[in-house]
């Protein structure tokens, strides 16, 4: 799940920003291309692609800084939904 999530999240970002190169662990906000519009798109993408609703307490920068952290968020949300 987590690897699939990584791949899908990475693919969503690179489709939008093909010029940017970054690792799964890298802080994408530090790269300077994420504005509030794209942040909203990321939230919508994760909710649609993984069939989840991100609760307010999980909506903070720390969860969206990198592909890895977003995949972790997806994993936590899926576990919460299942369990």
């Amino acid at each position: 799940m987590s690897n699939d999530a990584r791949t899908e999240i990475r693919s969503f970002i690179t489709t939008k920003f093909p010029d940017v190169t970054f690792s799964d662990e890298e802080d994408i906000f530090a790269l300077g291309f994420v504005n509030s519009l794209f942040a909203m798109e990321l939230v919508m993408f994760i909710e649609k692609a993984f069939g989840t609703r991100i609760p307010n307490e999980e909506l903070h920068l720390g969860n969206f800084r990198s592909v890895e952290l977003m995949a972790d968020l997806v994993r936590r949300q899926s576990a919460a939904t299942v369990g």
Binding site: S36, A39, M40, L59, H60
Partner: peptide
């Protein structure tokens, strides 16, 4: 209302959308 700080940009963007 909603998350404070960074994510308030998401609240705003969502409403403005």
């Amino acid at each position: 209302l909603g998350p404070p700080g960074w994510a308030a940009g998401t609240v705003m963007t969502n409403a403005l959308n």
